[in-house]
Design a protein around this nucleic acid. Sequence first.
DNA 1: GTTGACCCTCACGTAATGTCATAGTTTACA
DNA 2: TGTAAACTATGACATTACGTGAGGGTCAAC
Lengths: 254, 254
Amino acid sequence: MYQVKEVSELSGVSVRTLHHYDNIGLLQPSKVADNGYRYYNDENLKQLQQILFFKELDFSLNQIKEIMDDPEFNQKETLMNQRHLLEKKKHRLEKLINTIDETIDSMEEGKNMSNKKMFESFNMDDIKAHQEKYAKETEEKYGHTDAYKQSKERTSKYNEQDWKTIQEKSHSIYTRLAGLMDRSPREHEVQSVIGEWHSLIHDNFYECPPEMFKGLGDLYISDERFTKNIDQYGEGLASFMRDAMHIYSEQMSK
Amino acid sequence: MYQVKEVSELSGVSVRTLHHYDNIGLLQPSKVADNGYRYYNDENLKQLQQILFFKELDFSLNQIKEIMDDPEFNQKETLMNQRHLLEKKKHRLEKLINTIDETIDSMEEGKNMSNKKMFESFNMDDIKAHQEKYAKETEEKYGHTDAYKQSKERTSKYNEQDWKTIQEKSHSIYTRLAGLMDRSPREHEVQSVIGEWHSLIHDNFYECPPEMFKGLGDLYISDERFTKNIDQYGEGLASFMRDAMHIYSEQMSK
DNA sequence: GTTGACCCTCACGTAATGTCATAGTTTACA
DNA sequence: TGTAAACTATGACATTACGTGAGGGTCAAC
């Protein structure tokens, strides 16, 4: 039997915290005396250890409660989810580290970093790359000799401001899509953003019929370079976009 | 000049957050129009980037404010430090992910182990099986809805080491009982080991009142699976144990 | 001139405690 | 037996970093 302060000292959590855990039903002392004193036993200590373990993994108290109330069914799934979240966090960190490196590099070269590079580490280059790559591929396949030429003609006229605008737009699209990844790619909200994406390409680069748009989607996973860049907005975004673009193309063709 | 939403999309922070940073004086827009609209410039974006770095490193907004207000603040050096801290944080995350993986692994091992009908682990199995079977049966009979849940809750928390310990203990008990089969089940020496058996179940699985303990004994001969497993320690042990457990329960109830 | 997509300011809500204030309890010791 | 030290309790407001939503202006476009 331990009093609050003993438990507090044994475990390192504050008395207030123990009160709190009691109140929310997360960790209730094995006995409460008539005077209201809380008394904890060894079982309670083990539970507290568990709680602290999950806390270390960034679970919220609510989640922990659910896990401990229903251990058998949800624990594994919850752990997998948590793992996923931590992975995401890790990727964000890696991105940040990269950006810092780039910042330092550019400081050493005396270059100013452009805004785009500050918040994301890729620019229009990959859209350009896509044009080139895809245009060349489709040239043979569909005889669309024009797409590449068309896009080159158009993009060559763009100034920095134009690029910036386009870039901002696409950034916005990627970001919003990343936020929609828990939905079905078929959902209207997703399809609407994909529509924006299609318009952006259509308006700024080349005429992009359904077939071609679908092919672009495929490229997002068949070409690692695209996948990597797109997934910086959220792991799995490339694949999500491909699915959504496929669906969009089908709708368009009808 | 960027409006709040643009900055929000570029940086990934919410508009509300930008408002907040403005209010606390952490990031004030370079211009505020007559209509109250906030307008940010490139300098602001850089500041925001810095803020986000420090946030990633778990600094409080107050601390960040102090750092950025400090004229001594050396950009490059700070960035190097930040990089370093980020690496550390990344390692911490990797460790957490590992811990989760290990936990999941051990959960899966536990499952596999219980699927294996190996001699070593059989006793865990029959205890578990008994819990399930008996708990369900007694649920209606005695209203003991808790036993099953209780044991599940408890056993789900056991790690490999715990299981091993329990296994070793029960192995010892079975072996000693097998050696006592030439005595009367009523004898003190036998009853004492049966007492250990009861404690083991009581301590590690669920509260086990006499009635229930007696039921467990019955199961040892009514369910062939149990009989077979137990009799591996010595032919007739199952029946011997049942007798001894009956006697033990009667003694307990007095 | 009316959408629609922005923008603003309150102001209350949330999570996981911290931090009093006020007061009852237990224990040790003079 | 009295009192002080060291516990205990509840209650309630404070804190951090925003989220959320109400209620209402602003602006460009069709």
